[in-house]
Nucleic acid binder design. Structure first.
Lengths: 150, 150
DNA sequence: TGACCCATGTCAGTATTCTGACATACCTTT
DNA sequence: AAAGGTATGTCAGAATACTGACATGGGTCA
């Protein structure tokens, strides 16, 4: 006889998805007026902190496939937010950089996203936030380790 | 002069997205062999716990639009996993219920998802998990409250 | 009763992401 | 040097979710 289902009222997995969904919605809400999607913003923010990231690296950082990021990068390049060299300096990877326009566009978005993150954390103490960081990091590590062989 | 960007290495928002992404990937991995997507599974799990949920209620519970859930429900109904009355008993909402086939299909998926959730939490004590629940709940509530007027 | 508002189900079109596939470049090993 | 393995960029097609729109049912209030 099969076990009962997963109790969604107490499941941390479900709650994690709920929190992520709420964050996504809040971010979309503030980024929409700026004509920016979350992936779009993530890409610019990654490039601001680590100039020269390749398409594949940006994809991993934004949690999408490199194919999806490639589509986005081509649009961003066409519209003058980022630049890539015509030929790869080494290997196949094309290092991407923000243009002045890209940096300007990112400034407003960063402010908007910062306000959302502040709101998200307003009920948590500094100690709480440290604990939350530790636990989420542990979850990510466990999930990436793959199924336990035993 | 604009402020600097958001430090992704220490941002709880980014980490939340990372954890959610890792969970999504792990769930997709175990559900794929069963021919099931996450939304598909979520729908069945919701119906197992709260029989008679309407399309819109299922959509909210699975964090998708009611249009997306409607497409899924039509497929599930066509394939015999759920049933809906031909006419709404009251209002326009059609209460949905699992069939025996739907319940059987859910059993395997629940076991698979349970193993993923266990793995995710294996580094956290019971107290940790309670704290994580409290913090995530706080984040969801704060995000849904909308921007602080002040 | 009638006007209004809100929630629901549904259709259609659009957008975004994903999977599959291929060629290329680097690295390691033999 | 040659072969195998891994990573990358890119194209094409499929799957999935979303936005917009419309009609209907139920409730509230004047």
């Amino acid at each position: 006889m099969g076990q009962d289902g997963i109790d969604l009222e107490t499941s941390l997995g479900y709650l994690l998805k709920e929190a992520s969904s709420a964050l996504r919605l809040a971010m979309e809400e503030v980024l929409r007026p700026l004509g920016m999607t979350i992936t779009h913003y993530s890409c610019l923010e990654l490039l601001a902190q680590r100039p020269g990231l390749s398409n594949s690296e940006l994809a991993r950082g934004a949690f999408v496939t490199r194919q999806s990021m490639n589509v986005l990068l081509q649009a961003l390049e066409r519209d003058g937010y980022v630049t890539r060299p015509a030929a790869p300096p080494v290997g196949k990877a094309l290092p991407t950089r923000l243009t002045a326009r890209g940096r300007r566009s990112l400034e407003k978005a960063t402010a908007a996203v910062r306000s959302v993150e502040s709101r998200m954390l307003e009920g948590l103490s500094a100690g709480d936030q440290q604990e939350a960081f530790r636990m989420l990091t542990s979850m990510v590590r466990s999930l990436r380790e793959g199924p336990t062989p035993g």
